[in-house]
């Protein structure tokens, strides 16, 4: 299972920056990374992300950790582009598979772009607490409130989602370990055996998650938090 780190305590300009600015920065940064076409712009993007990584004082181990979990996904992207999506002169061909140099370049470029966006996302979560993310989303959505959009409810939903991701990952790992102890399976070599093990895990994961949702909603209501269909969330704030 992939790792998902949380907030990293440090004092850096990125930690002190407003969450709304970081969220906008992430979207803009991702758009710029997607606009990367050649080696020069890719090198510039790499340098920019490296500088941000140094400035954030989070540590490269934390920033690069999500990439290890994506290794298969990245490998498939490179392989598909290298073997299937190019009509250039092949270096090697086998049936419909044609290994081409432009295909390899394109696969590596797409994989590099994905890695950069993942590192930017990791930088956001490492330098911004879930509460700051909620506040940032609330700030960004504020103009929509005039159009009748329930922005408080939307911010609440985003906040609960962000807070629940590490919790559910931890619980899933515990359930996986318990299942491994009982009947093995996740370390099994066969893909089908591993898949069956994941399927067995789904019912307890969902029951645990919805039980937590039930407890949280009861606690929020007990503290006077109400979600109005038309007006959005009302009552005590920050009780999640």
């Amino acid at each position: 299972m992939r790792t998902f780190g949380g907030y990293v305590w440090a004092d850096s300009p990125l930690h002190r920056a407003p969450a709304a600015a970081k969220l906008v920065g992430l979207v803009v940064g991702a758009a710029l990374v997607l606009a990367v076409r050649g080696p020069i712009t890719l090198a510039a993007a790499l340098v920019a992300v490296a500088v941000l990584g140094v400035v954030s004082r989070v540590g490269w181990r934390r920033l690069l950790a999500p990439l290890w979990g994506m290794r298969w996904f990245l490998l498939v992207i490179v392989a598909l582009n290298a073997l299937l999506f190019s009509v250039s002169e092949p270096l090697f061909s086998l049936g419909p598979l044609r290994l081409t140099l432009p295909g390899i370049e394109r696969g590596l470029l797409i994989a590099a772009r994905t890695c950069l966006i993942v590192v930017l996302g990791a930088m956001l979560t490492a330098t911004t607490t879930p509460q700051q993310v909620v506040h940032g989303v609330r700030e960004l959505l504020k103009p929509l409130a005039r159009l009748g959009v329930p922005t408080e409810t939307a911010a609440l939903a985003v906040g609960v989602t962000v807070q629940f991701v590490p919790t559910l990952l931890r619980e899933s790992r515990q359930l996986m370990r318990a299942q491994e102890l009982r009947c093995g399976g996740f370390a099994a070599r066969g893909i089908m055996r591993r898949a069956v093990s994941y399927v067995r895990l789904l019912v307890p994961v969902f029951v645990c998650a919805v039980r937590r949702a039930d407890e949280l909603s009861r606690a929020m209501e007990a503290r006077g938090y109400r979600v109005d269909r038309r007006r959005g969330a009302t009552g005590e704030r920050g009780c999640s």
Binding site: R2, T153, V160, L168, R194, V205, V210, R212, S217
Partner: peptide, 21 residues
């Protein structure tokens, strides 16, 4: 709202687990 958020969180967590395949 909380169930929607928790299901969205599972929508982030489950692909992370399944991407080991």
């Amino acid at each position: 709202v909380v169930i929607a958020a928790v299901c969205a969180a599972l929508g982030v967590v489950l692909p992370m687990a399944f991407h080991a395949l």
